[in-house]
C-alpha cells in the first residue's frame, strides 16, 4: 500500500502508467478508475485522474466508448490501444530498472557521520 504521505509530484509522473495498467486489467470509466486507485492505496484527487485520462486518449494510448448507464448520464469506458500496451510495457520496464538502481543505493547502510572528502 502506498503511504498516504507519498510525493504527489512523483506519483503524477507515474500516474499514466498506473492508469494504463488498471485499464489493461479491466475496461473502466473515470470514477471507477478512481475507486480502483483508492482500493490499491493510491490516494489521488479525481480532478487529477480525469484530465490524465483525457491526455492518454489524446495521445492515442487509450480509446473510449460510451455506455448507457441506468443511474444517470452515459459513461465513457476506456481501454488501452496497441500503443498504450507498448507504452505500459516500456514504462514497467523502466520503472523496474529505476527501482532496482535507486533501491540498491537507498538500501546501503547510512553511517553516523559522512566520511571526510579529503
Amino acid at each position: 500500500m502506498v503511504d498516504a504521505s507519498h510525493d504527489p509530484q512523483l506519483l503524477k509522473g507515474l500516474l499514466s502508467f498506473v492508469l494504463l495498467q488498471l485499464l489493461a486489467e479491466e475496461e473502466s470509466y473515470g470514477y471507477d478508475v478512481v475507486s480502483r486507485l483508492h482500493q490499491a492505496g493510491i490516494e489521488v484527487l479525481e480532478g487529477t485522474v480525469y484530465p490524465a485520462l483525457a491526455r492518454l486518449e489524446r495521445e492515442g494510448r487509450i480509446s473510449s466508448r460510451l455506455v448507457a448507464s441506468r443511474s444517470g448520464p452515459a459513461r465513457k469506458y476506456y481501454r488501452p490501444t496497441a500503443e498504450g500496451y507498448a507504452e505500459l510495457e516500456r514504462g514497467a520496464r523502466s520503472w523496474r530498472a529505476l527501482t532496482e538502481t535507486v533501491g540498491a543505493v537507498l538500501n546501503r547502510p547510512v553511517p553516523d557521520h559522512p566520511r571526510e572528502g579529503i
Binding site: Y29, E46, Y50, S71, G72, P73, A74, R75, K76
Partner: peptide
C-alpha cells in the same frame, strides 16, 4: 461538450457512492 458530459457522469457516480 464531451468533457462536460464526462465530468458530470463521473461526479454523479461519485456522489451516489
Amino acid at each position: 461538450i464531451a468533457t462536460r458530459r464526462e465530468v458530470r457522469s463521473n461526479v454523479v457516480s461519485a456522489a451516489e457512492s
